[in-house]
Write a protein that binds this DNA or RNA. Structure first.
Lengths: 198, 198
DNA sequence: GGCGCACTATGACAGCGGTCATAGTACGCG
DNA sequence: CGCGTACTATGACCGCTGTCATAGTGCGCC
């Protein structure tokens, strides 16, 4: 409740997400998280008595909320909201980062799924929840744009899948080309799903 | 050159790929690979003097060749080859595995990218190469079906991206729904890219 | 038999991981 | 002042990892 709790605890979760998305879950150490957050090592067991499992899960949940929250911001920034415009904005966030900061990081939820989900069930569940809190707002945005409800969910899944995969390819190739490709190829398909009215 | 070399060495690479796609690269130990392959521990430094880095890279390359090779088999099994049919076959391989063996494994190339690429440059390059040897045959198949060359590469990237992302979501959700979704949603788009002749 | 080569077998080592135990500080409250 | 609570500080422990060193086995070949 104090300021320091909001500060140190939250900072450690944030740092965990940052490190996880760069190095992976297994390669990210607890001491490393504390150091990156500028937090004392002793705070780890104070704030996260559940150990690494708890810290990782909270980082994954944080990432899910972050991604879901971005959707509203993207929509607000679009002059005229269209499905392709939303997807382009989602993709652009990554092309911008890769252009400015290099290809060091990926999606923390993807990292947790790939390299921790099998051994730690709660983390797998947290990843599923994170994807849900991400695709949810996307699907809602699509329906608001006139996409029929029965397709909005499917298209949101497609958008997130294509984006995650493109992030993967882009990191491997060290090139934003896959990201640009999925944005341009998927755009028309997404816009075509809008129910024409009048 | 002897039988045992083909046997033990290859088996270890295969086992490495298997373990990596389940647990991730960092969580997969060398001793574990040898045990899984039924190979003696001493063979590790004999066949892979480059250490874990070499073993991981070979596993990634093997996975890339495997994925690329599957494309031809999928095509051969299709009564009438269409882009959507090829993509459906690629997706079905994963839905079948998840249905029969559970959601334990993902794509080893994705695992290597997410959790080893940042620290080991050669592995990142191997992952990029693996993706290239996978998308290559896909793009070639598309052109053979009548997709214009300038779009075939882009669509191949889209297919692989969507598939990789859907694998991720499916593992997290423990449900093949994302895989089925991308297959049905992307099918029409892919078929529409075929150059209508006559 | 003797030599060389491919392969196998172990044991040790140094480092790092997460976690636990224990103690110490700071501060608000009565 | 005394006490409790929140937080910090360290150090130790044990298990595991990749790697190296050293020695041993089997087999073909002269």
């Amino acid at each position: 409740m104090t300021v320091s709790e909001r500060g140190a605890r939250e900072r450690m979760v944030f740092s965990a997400a940052q490190l996880i998305r760069r190095e992976g879950v297994a390669a990210t150490g607890m001491r490393e998280v504390a150091a990156h957050a500028g937090a004392p090592r002793g705070s780890l067991q104070h704030y996260f008595p559940g150990g690494k499992e708890q810290l990782v899960n909270e980082a994954v949940e944080w990432a899910g909320r972050y991604a879901g929250g971005r959707v509203a911001r993207f929509l607000a920034a679009l002059p005229e909201p269209t499905p392709s415009g939303l997807f382009a904005a989602m993709v652009r966030q990554w092309t911008d980062e890769y252009a400015s900061a290099g290809f060091a990081g990926g999606c923390p939820v993807a990292a947790a799924t790939v390299d921790w989900a099998e051994s730690t069930v709660s983390t797998r569940a947290a990843a599923a929840q994170a994807f849900a809190t991400w695709t949810g707002p996307v699907a809602r945005a699509l329906t608001d744009m006139g996409v029929p409800e029965e397709r909005a969910g499917a298209l949101a899944t497609l958008m997130v899948s294509a984006l995650e995969g493109a992030i993967l390819l882009a990191r491997a190739e060290q090139d934003v080309r896959p990201l640009a490709t999925v944005a341009t190829e998927l755009g028309p398909l997404l816009d075509a799903a809008v129910r024409r009215e009048g």
